[in-house]
Write a protein that binds this DNA or RNA. Structure first.
Length: 270
DNA sequence: CTAAATACCTGATGGC
DNA sequence: TGCCATCAGGTATTTA
């Protein structure tokens, strides 16, 4: 389940194999992803790669002719293989590189996507409306306070809303709210400015730590399983329903908020 | 405009 | 051993 740290770790893992290389051609084995892979993509030839970037959870492979947009959805992963490695079930798209490696998109649940933009992707409808990057300077307490103003929806849903801030998935939303001492179900409008200060730094901390730890698993991209992996980061609430809180004598509770399991400590979070 | 519900999909898991 | 039901989860889209 790629969250932002996994996507960033993936970007760092594949970039060395793509930078300075060319995508010779693309082979689509199963076009049935979140959106059908455009037939246009199968016709692409000899694309010199300029850079591998990321916006929210989208990977952007900038080339001389345009940009490939790749999303890993829930179950997607990218691996760099050589031709001797057999293609696995659910390896839906292959990018053949001029250095004889193959970048393979593996996605059992097919929630991911591979799209093409003739420009740099910034104007693409999927990217143009996104909120700030959580680790960027323009995601700060004043901004968040303003974004939550007048909102009755649960603060957890709001920080998972891509128009407000990108890249915060279910796991890290729960963990950040725990660190900030805020209950996930509280209305956005009822989060004070000083709580926004704490919440913003909690989000940055949780995501930043996970990305730093992801860096240690980079080698896994080229051999073995290709899983961006499990970050050593210990989880305080996610998946710990019924277990004791790490910081008080309370028991972690789980509640469904916006169709999603949300774990929190009733004592530490108010 | 906001908020909530819906859709997409397969693998893992638990009950019978 | 097999089968069904349930759950998980990102996010665009639809509905209220």
């Amino acid at each position: 389940m790629p969250e932002l740290p996994e996507v960033e770790t993936t970007r760092r893992g594949i970039a060395p194999w793509l930078d300075g290389s060319e995508i010779r051609h693309v082979k689509v084995h199963d076009a049935r992803l979140r959106w059908p892979v455009p037939t246009q993509i199968s016709a692409l030839r000899n694309l010199p790669v300029k850079a591998v970037a990321r916006r929210a959870k989208y990977l952007l492979i900038h080339t001389e002719q345009g940009t490939l947009l790749i999303h890993l959805g829930m179950s997607g992963s990218l691996r760099v293989c050589d031709a001797s490695t057999p293609r696995r079930k659910h390896d839906h798209v292959e990018f053949f590189l001029s250095n004889d490696n193959i970048l393979r998109l593996h996605d059992p649940r097919r929630f991911g996507c591979v799209l093409w933009d003739t420009d740099d992707g910034a104007e693409h409808p999927l990217l143009s409306q996104l909120g700030p990057e959580p680790l960027g300077e323009d995601f700060h307490a004043d901004y968040l306070k303003q974004a939550l103003k007048g909102r009755k929806a649960a603060v957890k849903n709001l920080i998972m809303n891509n128009h407000i801030v990108v890249g915060v998935g279910n796991i890290y939303a729960a963990e950040a709210l725990y660190r900030a001492g805020i209950r996930p179900g509280r209305a956005g409008a009822r989060v004070s400015l000083s709580e926004c200060v704490v919440l913003v730094s909690a989000i940055k901390e949780v995501l930043g730590t996970a990305i730093r730890q992801g860096g240690t698993t980079l080698r896994d991209f080229v051999n073995s399983d290709g899983q961006p992996g499990y970050f050593a980061q210990s989880l305080n609430v996610y998946g710990r329903s019924g277990e004791p809180c790490h910081h008080c004598d309370g028991i972690i509770k789980s509640k469904t908020i916006g169709q999603r399991a949300s774990c929190y400590c009733p004592q530490c979070q108010r």
